[in-house]
Amino acid sequence: MSGFLTIWLHTLSEARHRKLLVASFALIGLQLILIAALVGSASGMITVAGALVHGMPGGTDALGAIFAGLAVTFYYPGLLLMVWLTAGFFPRMQERGSIDLLLSKPIGRLALFAGRFAGCATIALAASTLYFGGNYLVLGWKTGIWIPAFLLTIPATLFAYTAFLTMMALISQAGRSTALSAALVTGYAVFIGPLLYAAETELGRTLMGDSAWAGLFAVLYNVLPRTTETGSLLFEAVRHGRIGDTTALLQVALSSLAWFAVGAFWFHRKDY
């Protein structure tokens, strides 16, 4: 069995033994029960809340818009859940006594790094499928309306999560701390990312003018993955079944690749 496969399987085994998936599934289950109850009694409240966040469009396709709003409403908690679930995997692998043992085995560092990465992504895929699949089933069961485009939340969340995972893998090279990885990525997801996105809007540009901050924000906006925009694209995809402008997706993919490459190179060269 190759080193990559062994590390990938071990990461899944670690998640199972640490009861991470059980805990997350329990949380997701509770949330699904809550959603089922709310949809049964006051589905409009959630729908309006979700839709308002990303702008309720006018027009006739209200159902598509409602489900798109719900998709985005569930998107961020799902994403953060995956980040918190897997934030400890890279720091734990690099603890003293543990990393020495792994590196002394006849396995390349890149295989080790990639195996761990793939393991985390698989855990996220499992959690994401359960979370969004569960929400889809509950919504369909309670409302009798089935909009398969809602399931685009699964690949969309996994896509954004992969960008965050590259950041966590890189941060762990410097800090080896679960709390630091989780805090920085959460901070980016809920504060820095939206801030950079806002700064790039027409209003943001007007407000910032020619200040030095404007230049810095522009650089960061282009270097860091634009995960905030994937939420808006998700809304569009669920509502219309297609995406107009794929620039943000391409930027997230390239940025994630670059971050992965930097993380892998750092891991490859680092002295433990």
Partner: peptide
């Protein structure tokens, strides 16, 4: 190799 302060997957 037996490293100093070895750490196994404790689970």
């Amino acid at each position: 190799y037996l490293p100093e302060n070895i750490r196994f997957p404790d689970f």
